[in-house]
C-alpha cells in the first residue's frame, strides 16, 4: 500500500446534500476510514478545506447551469479519480424531470415573466454529460456502505462491481411480502438495481428505482404488466423516470413505448 494516505474530497452540486449526510452517518466506521484516507475537502462537515488535488473526488448532485458546468470541469482537472455519488449525480435525480417539461413555462412559473429572462436554465445533466466519470455509486441518498466499500476496494487495488441483481432478490432474501403481486402497487423492483437491501419494499413501499435499472432490464415486460394492471403510460413513465430521468437506456425504451401508443413523450409533464 502507498505510504501517503489518499487525499479525498467530497463536494456537492444541485441536490439535497443527503449523500454527504449519508457519508457522515457512517458513525461506526468514520474513525477507521480516517485511518486510511485524508479528507481534505468536505465543506459540509469541516473547515480548512483544500481545493485539490484529489486522489479521489466524490461528487454529489446534478449540473443545472453553466456556472456549475465550468466548476465541475475545473474539479475534474484536479481529480485523479472522479466518482459520481447518488442518483442526482448519476442519473439527474428528481430535478431532471424538468427535462420533460417546457423550459419556458418552468422558468416563468419559478421566476415570473420578467425574472425568467434573467435566469437561463439548461437541461439538468448528470455528471457524465459534462465530464468523464470514473465510477458510479448509486442510491438516493448514496448507500453509505457502497461508499465505504468503494474506498476499501480502491485502496486494496480492486474495482467494485455493481451487483446487477434486481430488488426482487433482496426482497425474497428478506422474506418480504410482494406488494406488486399481492396489492397491485406499482413497484419497479423487478427491473431496478438492488444493493439497498430492498429498503422501500421492506417498509411496504414500492421500489421507485433510485439505483437505476439493471443490465438487460425487462422494461418491456414490466411496462406491459403495469399497463395490464391498469396504469397509464403517463403514470408509468413518471414512475420510471422519477429518479433516473437521464438513464439513456430507459429513456430510449420509453420513447418507443409512447410511439407505440401514438403519443409523443416530450414535455409530457405539465
Amino acid at each position: 500500500m502507498a505510504t501517503a494516505k489518499p487525499q479525498i474530497g467530497i463536494v456537492g452540486f444541485t441536490g439535497c446534500a443527503g449523500c454527504q449526510l449519508s457519508i457522515l452517518d457512517l458513525e461506526d466506521e468514520l474513525l477507521d476510514l480516517l485511518q486510511l484516507v485524508d479528507i481534505i475537502d468536505f465543506r459540509m462537515a469541516m473547515t480548512g478545506n483544500k481545493e485539490g488535488p484529489y486522489d479521489i473526488l466524490f461528487v454529489e448532485g446534478s449540473i443545472v447551469n453553466e456556472k456549475q458546468e465550468e466548476e465541475l470541469k475545473e474539479l475534474r482537472k484536479k481529480a485523479k479519480i472522479l466518482v459520481a455519488i447518488g442518483t442526482c449525480a448519476v442519473f439527474g435525480g428528481v430535478q431532471a424531470l424538468r427535462n420533460f417539461m417546457n423550459d419556458e413555462q418552468v422558468r416563468v412559473r419559478q421566476y415570473g415573466t420578467e425574472g425568467a429572462k434573467k435566469h437561463p436554465v439548461i437541461k439538468v445533466k448528470p455528471l457524465n454529460q459534462v465530464v468523464k466519470v470514473d465510477h458510479y455509486l448509486l442510491e438516493c441518498p448514496v448507500n453509505k456502505y457502497d461508499f465505504l466499500n468503494f474506498v476499501k476496494y480502491v485502496l486494496a487495488g480492486g474495482a467494485p462491481k455493481l451487483p446487477n441483481i434486481p430488488v426482487c432478490q433482496q426482497c425474497k432474501e428478506k422474506g418480504n411480502r410482494c406488494i406488486f403481486l399481492e396489492d397491485g402497487i406499482l413497484c419497479m423492483g423487478p427491473v431496478m438495481q438492488a444493493g439497498c437491501g430492498a429498503l422501500c419494499p421492506s417498509h411496504n413501499l414500492p421500489c421507485d428505482g433510485c439505483r437505476g435499472s439493471i443490465l438487460q432490464a425487462a422494461y418491456q415486460q414490466q411496462v406491459d404488466l403495469m399497463l395490464e394492471k391498469g396504469a397509464s403510460i403517463e403514470d408509468i413513465t413518471r414512475h420510471l423516470l422519477k429518479y433516473t430521468a437521464e438513464d439513456e437506456q430507459l429513456k430510449a425504451f420509453l420513447r418507443e413505448k409512447w410511439k407505440e401508443q401514438g403519443k409523443k413523450m416530450e414535455y409530457f409533464i405539465e
Binding site: C168, Q169, K172, C178, P190, V191, Q221, D224, L225
Partner: peptide, 13 residues
C-alpha cells in the same frame, strides 16, 4: 419470455 420479468423470484422461492 415476453411475459417474464426476469426478477428471479421463482428461483428464490
Amino acid at each position: 419470455t415476453k411475459k417474464c420479468l426476469f426478477c428471479g423470484s421463482c428461483t428464490f422461492v
